[in-house]
Design a protein around this nucleic acid. Structure first.
Ligand SMILES: NC(=O)c1ccc[n+]([C@@H]2O[C@H](COP(=O)([O-])OP(=O)(O)OC[C@H]3O[C@@H](n4cnc5c(N)ncnc54)[C@H](O)[C@@H]3O)[C@@H](O)[C@H]2O)c1
Ligand SMILES: NC(=O)c1ccc[n+]([C@@H]2O[C@H](COP(=O)([O-])OP(=O)(O)OC[C@H]3O[C@@H](n4cnc5c(N)ncnc54)[C@H](O)[C@@H]3O)[C@@H](O)[C@H]2O)c1
Lengths: 233, 233
DNA sequence: AGGTCTTTGTGAACGCGCGCACAAAGTCGC
DNA sequence: GCGACTTTGTGCGCGCGTTCACAAAGACCT
């Protein structure tokens, strides 16, 4: 590695998006009692090519041992550090409907560096109720307690999402995960990631149809070939 | 357009991933009573650049009118056709826990070309119960009724996901949306898309930390500059 | 009917990310 | 200790996607 400690490294977005997958695979290896892994095996577990994995890891320094592989614990720590997961991040879920309930009850956040700390809604009927051990609060209350580095999850209807995003950014939130199927306008410096299930299904539908059309083509070509053969004799 | 009707067009993956967003924006315009839109305005609504939007649309043919813009209804139809949304697609949700319940109750699928037709679980306690108007069934029952073009949504714990995927592919499913945080191995020709919330949050955490570090750097540089200034006088 | 003006569609340049090939480095056997 | 073997780290080329610049096409005004 030619990287001085403490120096800012610019890691490609594509690599950053894969680091969580590597981290998950590494945790699974730890749980299985494996403490050294080759790039080939780890790549297999993460569903990528080994050469790509090595290039990704090279961006955070050279923590592998040639002829041996990577120390699972060491690499886990390095990736976690790079992702900023030494400490838990506080999460606020906004919109406690069907989806908000499921998210509040989800145990997968706590094991991966996040603590759902606030549940927020607008409906006076919902505010004050207890969900998964947390009392639902309103925006005014959140504005008073929200600290730096809070991550907001928007699970309101799309009609309310922009308004919610505006309020969150006003109180200093710079990271938003949006489940509402709509485009959010946010100020410079605020990062939005979206999860859109219907969009995912529509992409699947496109390929499903394409596969079906290709089958049709194959059938047509088969018929055509048969006709040619018939005409030829 | 230099494209003969009925010819297979190869549309870039990146474009396919954006078509659903355009379609959603177009539907909103229809609802607002707008029937002609410029690439500039549509791009704004979709959160992309107008030049990129036009290039995307050019892949499906030239349906715009120069000097005017695009006919909203016409373009909606063309995109829906391209995505294979003339008819609804049947969806089976596997794993009726917290997330499965929320998905089954979600109204956003029906309005965007999908019909949740089967709810599947393994637990005998859950099989036979009615959720959102549908009776939960087991795999054996699904295998008997599942038709061609079925899209499977996996909402089971990650430990069960691979097994579920195997069973689904065996019964001919070629499109899977996976919510379990794990990598799925599937045969050639089967398309898997994954939704991993913890991964999304970790990507946000990375940028959040990076922003924080940059603030630190700015502060440090400020201190440094002050010291330099002090030393200079 | 002709001119102007708006907006589309596309060729070309650019940058990024992926895959390949290979050298460097370190381990293990003898 | 030395050689063979394993596995990492990286320079390079290629293909894809995004952006830019501009010409073509049609509407609208006079
Ligand atoms: N349910 C799902 O499985 C699912 C799946 C994908 C996407 N989504 C999307 O997630 C969002 C939530 O879905 P849902 O099914 O939970 O909806 P829901 O109607 O059940 O719940 C919405 C909640 O948001 C609250 N809310 C409304 N406006 C608010 C505001 N301004 N501030 C704070 N809270 C507000 C409401 O009081 C309600 O509790 C929707 O945008 C939906 O499209 C849901
Ligand atoms: N709850 C959330 O908000 C949330 C968010 C993100 C991801 N996830 C992921 O989604 C998945 C489901 O989460 P959940 O909270 O609903 O879990 P859950 O434990 O509440 O429900 C899991 C359900 O799957 C069923 N199941 C288990 N094995 C099965 C099998 N082999 N075949 C069919 N059904 C089977 C169980 O009977 C149960 O009903 C998990 O992988 C979780 O990590 C959940």
């Amino acid at each position: 590695m030619t990287q001085a400690p403490g120096t800012r490294r610019d890691i490609p977005d594509a690599t950053v998006a894969r680091l969580p997958v590597y981290l998950r695979a590494l945790r699974a290896l730890t749980a299985a009692g494996i403490d050294v892994v080759s790039s080939e095996d780890l790549a297999q577990a993460a569903g990528v090519r080994s050469t790509g994995l090595r290039k990704d890891l090279s961006h955070l320094g050279s923590y592998g041992v040639r002829g041996v592989g990577y120390d699972v614990a060491r690499l886990s720590d390095e990736i976690a550090r790079e992702l900023g997961l030494q400490h838990d991040w506080a999460v606020a879920i906004v919109g406690m409907g069907n989806l908000g309930h499921a998210l509040a009850a989800y145990s997968g956040f706590a094991t991966r560096g996040f603590k759902v700390r606030w549940l927020v809604d607008e409906d006076p009927e919902v505010i004050g109720t207890v969900i998964a051990g947390l009392t639902v609060i309103g925006f005014d209350e959140l504005a008073m307690v929200a600290g730096d580095g809070l991550i907001a999850v928007i699970a309101t209807p799309p009609t309310a999402a922009q308004d919610v995003a505006d309020q969150m950014t006003r109180m200093g939130v710079r990271s938003i995960l949006n489940f509402a199927p709509c485009v959010l306008q946010v100020p410079e410096g605020v990062e939005v990631r979206k999860v859109d299930l219907a969009t995912e299904l529509q992409i699947l539908a496109f390929h499903e149809q394409r596969g079906r059309d290709e089958d049709d083509d194959a059938a047509r070509l088969g018929v055509h070939a048969a006709r040619v053969a018939e005409a030829a004799r």
